[in-house]
Design a protein around this nucleic acid. Structure first.
Lengths: 199, 199, 199, 199
DNA sequence: AATGAATGAGCATTCATTCAT
DNA sequence: TATGAATGAATGCTCATTCAT
């Protein structure tokens, strides 16, 4: 019987190796060594190298989606919900830098390389933002002239770009709370001084 | 004497091939064929495969930076300047999808792979946004509690994420102008209805 | 105690799989699946993959040798004996195509691959022809200027080549009886017309 | 430009290695080393390992077919023609044991492994025997009740089986001429003593 | 005895880079 | 300068065999 522990040991190892070397420079033997498993064992749990990558996405993002959905379900104010989303995202990515890098870097490769893969979990994850915005619009809290489908990309893109450079320049400069606060401030009220809004 | 024509023929070919296949799946012989040049000839102009990638970044982004700087120099209103930046970026990425993909996908790999490469042109490019924000703050148009160093990432990240999915779902749905307008609206004034701003 | 049933189930399965895929392309797991047994179980009955192959030869050819010896023991005319041998061989190979292929194809590999294996049963099988010829020579039925050791190879080679193409071109064209009759005609009387014999 | 010398160097090396180890146990690096060429070079001249095997067959058998056809064209007596064929075959196989083994052993694998390969040269080679027999029948030298399509298999099978064991037991016992004489004697006149022919 | 998960040696093939012409 | 044949290191994946249960 397949060993569920071994499966996730490989996923964790692969996340680490992919993050460190990138998908193409990662060798199966690197992952095997990291997971303390024989090379061949990996193929008892995954079809091929791409399959490992996809599994990393689906399973790890799946966990985040589940978590964030649970937390969001306890909140009703769309403003707070966006704050929760942003803070949660940044905290997760800061805590799990390996996953952060894999998402940011490899995710972009994947669609091109594996035609028939559709990032279901990832789409579900970014769609949460669109849902929150729609909800806020219904409650007359968010402007109706904002397109949720576009705005979700802005919001996620902004978050993603910020955490992209996590390991380099931003490190140490700002706390998650500061960045989250800045993002919310801009996203909710814009960067214009009130006096200039009607210009 | 280096042949400037051949040099740029290779750059153009490489951009095309990298965009289509990704850096790792692109073969030197693919680039050589696309550039109508012998494999060995490429090594008269570039040190290695990574060198080609870096050159693509530096030279192509260099062109965009020069262009956008020139256009911005003719404008003084920081609000308009951000609009120009956004529209120009989106138009360029839409027109030159090859470059767009290379920037979005490969750029992220590069820092990790080539330790001593610092994306000078790219940093220059994103710093333009920070400069505009700082300028606006000095002119009392932009809020002082916004960190230009963080905000530039939000702005660029939002633009980048939007153009990332250019080839897929957004295609046909929205025009560059609509997206640019939405981004500016959000970035400048936020998504809150005025009544809710002080909540 | 070794389970005799399981042993022969594996032999039968291996014969089938070797015939279908060839020795080198056959996987142990194929044989195990065909025999409805676990992979590891095979190693309770055989030392390794080569050992299975050798066992297939020895046991299956052993059965044929025993059968044909029994039938031959009831006949005294060396002419009839060759006919019995030919017909029996062709019928067996036609009925058991798996074994036929394994003998024809893999047998030839074996000597080269397994230095210390001597095809005892197979040698016994072909030597039957030499024995018949010697017998006929003693009875003044067969010519004395024929070398039984060479002639046995001709006879077996002819039979083998005929059954080699069984699955392809000869299929349907000729019956076993026709082929057997032709072989006997040639082997016993040659292809020359009587008038030309002394040329 | 492809180097014709290198092509045939690889063919010769491959023939040697296939003969010694068999197709499946032969490593590309063995062939490369034997041909004094880099592993990768082989793939400039052949598509894959199977392609090398097929080329060995076609080209080497092609040479033999051409040679034997030329020699046969200078002879008109169908009896002599069979003698020439037999002697030539045995001499060639004795001189070029590598090729002999490859033909005998690997040829049989090939049809099964490479479905779309049709051994054209080989078929041409064995068909020569059928042609000679047909010719002799027209000249009233060979019996009309012999099927050339069956007899060719007997003749070739006999020759092939004899040369199969060349490296083992027959070595030293008999000369090519003796074997050829025995085969012709049997094939032309049969093994029966004249007195027993009408039995 | 039987199982099948785990192992890890082995190998065909690719492709960036070199260098003789 | 330009060429492209030659090189050989590198690696994903397979599968015979082992062994804990």
């Amino acid at each position: 019987m397949k060993d569920i522990t071994k499966h996730s040991k490989i996923i964790t190892a692969a996340t680490k190796v992919f993050a460190k070397k990138g998908f193409f420079n990662a060798r199966i033997s690197d992952i095997a060594k990291e997971a303390k498993v024989a090379d061949g064992t990996i193929y008892l749990y995954f079809n091929n190298k791409y399959d490992i990558l996809i599994s990393v996405f689906e399973e790890e993002i799946g966990k985040i989606v589940a978590q964030i959905k649970k937390t969001l379900s306890e909140e009703t104010d769309p403003r707070k919900m966006l704050e929760i989303y942003a803070t949660k995202h940044l905290l997760t990515m800061k805590k799990n830098k390996n996953l952060a890098e894999v998402i940011q870097i490899e995710l972009r490769q994947t669609n091109k390389l594996i035609k028939d893969y559709r990032n279901n979990k990832f789409i579900e994850y970014t769609d949460l933002v669109a849902d929150i915005i729609s909800l806020g619009q219904k409650q007359n809290i968010y402007r109706r002239d904002i397109e949720p489908g576009i705005a979700k990309r802005f919001f996620f893109g902004a978050l993603d770009e910020v955490s992209r450079v996590w390991n380099t320049s931003l490190e140490g400069h700002y706390t998650v709370e500061q960045i989250s606060e800045q993002l919310l401030k801009i996203f909710l009220s814009g960067i214009l001084l009130p006096d200039n809004i009607n210009t």
